[in-house]
Write a protein that binds this DNA or RNA. Sequence first.
RNA 1: CGGGGUAUAGCGCAGCCCGGUUAGCGCACCUGUUUUGGGAACAGGGGGCCGCAAGUUCGAAUCUUGCUACCCCGACCA
Length: 379
Amino acid sequence: MRATQLFCPTLKEAPNDAVMPSHQLMIRAGLIHQISAGIYSYLPMGVRVLKRIEAIVRQYLDPVAQEVLLPVLIPSGLWQQSGRWDKYGPELFRIVDRHNNDFCLGPTHEEVICSLASYGIRSYKQLPVTLYQIQTKFRDEIRPRSGLMRGREFSMKDAYSFHATAECLDRQYDTMMGIYHALFEALGLATTCVPADSGAIGGDQSAEFVTQTEEPIELGHIFKLGHVYSAPMQAEFHASNGQQQPFFMGCYGIGIGRTMAAIIEAHHDADGMCWPPAVAPFQLVIIVANTKNTTQMTEAQALYDRLNAQYSVVLDDRDSSVGAKFKDANLIGYPLQVVVGKHIEAQAVEVIDRRSRASTQVPLSGIDAYIQTVVQAWQ
RNA sequence: CGGGGUAUAGCGCAGCCCGGUUAGCGCACCUGUUUUGGGAACAGGGGGCCGCAAGUUCGAAUCUUGCUACCCCGACCA
């Protein structure tokens, strides 16, 4: 991608409204744009990071769960059956269709998944089953805050497991707990798991996954729901004795946008973001010090054509001063900066590691190998 | 919802107390010239219903009242 074509409006100063570093940096680096309280647009840079996070979430979940996509728009009947249409309160976004039927915008999907499970799972022989989705949720929060930390519209990974027995549920709950630790670690976050109050979701046992930054951030929450939803929703299967029984259920959530904010809280400095390479929007930026210098521009272009075939690369071909390009590169937090500048006459470029700030002169002939070594070390 | 704050150009701000030229500054943006290794310089230029509504007044960004939006703290959450 060429910087001259990239839709990435950056700011020198943070908007007054943004207080937390992650919120300020996401706005300054052109990742998000606020539309209303707790409601944001994601720009290309933000979407790229979001997709990287989602890819890692899928990588860790796919071995133990299958991805589905449930509707956002949910008819009130399902929620009346679980009893939550009345219990959930004003946090539930409610809307009415042209036939005067009530719907809500899904804040969580126990009811919908119960409906799906009763349809698709008839026998104990099919159990256990775990389904998950990554989807936008809607909650009319009392107080949205701190950018993506608590929104009224936010992306969540929610998984639901179905079991014939409580013991089977226990096993999947433990499995998920292990997966969550590994998953967050892959995202660059050290988490601790603490017992929690089950809150509005309900259930027998639950635990929160918390990462410690300036303040603790709750990134995930897992629940043993038991029969809390399956009984009233009549989500049942045929047991080996022929009797109908409600599923033992578990549910497992991760806030995707909040995780993105937490990663920034954990990985930034005074100049901007220091992405773990696994979630960076691009792997490297090629900075052309002086775009009017034909040699620099030609060599940078050739380098870009080669590297872009293997890595995600931005070519900063903007006609601004080199200082401005460094500032933006540091702000956006490309893990590697390749500077094509004055040393090009001596057939050399400079490679800067964003996190360590280490700078290395690399001969042009060896640049591909050098970058390959660095990128391999990331994994 | 309780408490606190803010609202003037895309972003950051001044002006308001004490009403009175055409509402101003920095950044960003456009044109030109010169620049190019850590947010360049000069010259010229565009962009405002001063959050909304009523009121006071000859006259309101400025005073009064009401409303709305947004931010922060709390309870809650992913």
